[in-house]
Design a protein around this nucleic acid. Structure first.
Lengths: 188, 188
DNA sequence: TCCATTTAGTTTCGACTCAATACTAATTTC
DNA sequence: GAAATTAGTATTGAGTCGAAACTAAATGGA
């Protein structure tokens, strides 16, 4: 069992995912990149819902992303709102229409049901292996990991007092720590 | 450990892969889709090296793929050759320049080194979990898996007489069964 | 046998993505 | 308080993509 083998299967899985996402988006008049941006926005936390963060997550320039977001807004999938503290910053929030679309897309994709029929021990192994690979990739290429807070080295578990982000010192709820954060870093 | 969790990590990993592939390709004047096509062509077997197969693998229309292949040929990364038996069919073979580029790309990507530093037991678990998920996805969405012959239900192990493809009845070498085939189906 | 159908591939066209560049406006720095 | 930085937008040109129309070779009946 070689690394090449794992690489190939992973590659193929990614391709299938992309094909399905494309096909689904087309049915609703959305381009693949727009689906990806909207998916991200339904899963990211309140530090990470800006055009800049979307651009970093997708690995595209902010100019490019700006256009995709404009389309999503025009079609009623998300709302833009100026930040109260820093007026340069635009906050992006999916509308009900937008988040419903993504929910449906995730259910329609075959990855979800395929995972559902895999036993949970295997999924646990899989997730842990993938996470360690992701950590490795992050170290090697220096890019951000965009993980959820509960796997982040800055996240502090204050037991019955809840969670706190070590970067912003803000308290985080149980729901919060499941969301994707642009400041995410895996523990060393 | 939820399926959602595994889904997210997988999603992120795919995104990182794509970002790196894009960045690498750009340095050599190739578009992401061209890199993907060329990668496929260095890894597929002799039943699967046609424009149609590339289109199926990438989930694009043959017209679209035809253009990408034209560019790859013009830039000297692959050669086209008419099939001897069926003159409609075009056989695609990466040139030395082409396969060297892909070799370099795979090494440059961070997935490869990240896999290298993961212990082999974990990789074995990972591969087996991914494969079972892929099998599930294949059943659900009906798309082709494009796996390597040695994981295919048509592949027959004739022990010291080598391998035989149950579809074409052709003998296959040890190298052959590592390649990606468009007819691939996982065992039930 | 021969004509219709199917299959593999190409070409063309219009809608769209994307990076690069230049731009505005708000914030930070010193 | 001016210069530099940061967040975001607009424009442009190269390139992708799907749809549709096309060519050419193979297949399949009657």
């Amino acid at each position: 069992m070689s690394a090449q083998e794992a690489n190939d299967v992973l590659e193929r899985l990614c391709n299938l995912q992309r094909m399905e996402a494309r096909a689904f988006g087309l049915r609703y008049g959305l381009q693949p990149v727009q689906m990806e941006a909207l998916t991200y926005l339904t899963q990211c936390n309140r530090y990470s819902n800006t055009p800049q963060a979307v651009a970093e997550y997708l690995g595209l320039t902010k100019g490019t992303v700006s256009q995709s977001l404009k389309v999503l807004e025009q079609k009623g999938f998300l709302r833009k709102q100026a930040d109260n503290e820093d007026k340069r910053i635009v906050r992006l929030a999916p509308t009900t229409k937008g988040s419903n679309l993504i929910k449906k897309a995730l259910l329609t994709r075959s990855l979800e049901p395929a995972l559902a029929r895999t036993d949970s021990i295997k999924i646990a192994e899989l997730t842990s292996a993938l996470r360690s690979i992701l950590r490795g990739m992050q170290q090697i290429n220096g890019r951000k990991a965009f993980g959820a807070c509960h796997t982040c080295r800055f996240n502090e578990d204050h037991e019955k007092n809840g969670y706190v982000c070590g970067l912003t010192r803000e308290p985080l709820s149980v729901q919060d720590i499941q969301l994707i954060c642009r400041e995410h870093q895996y523990p060393h």
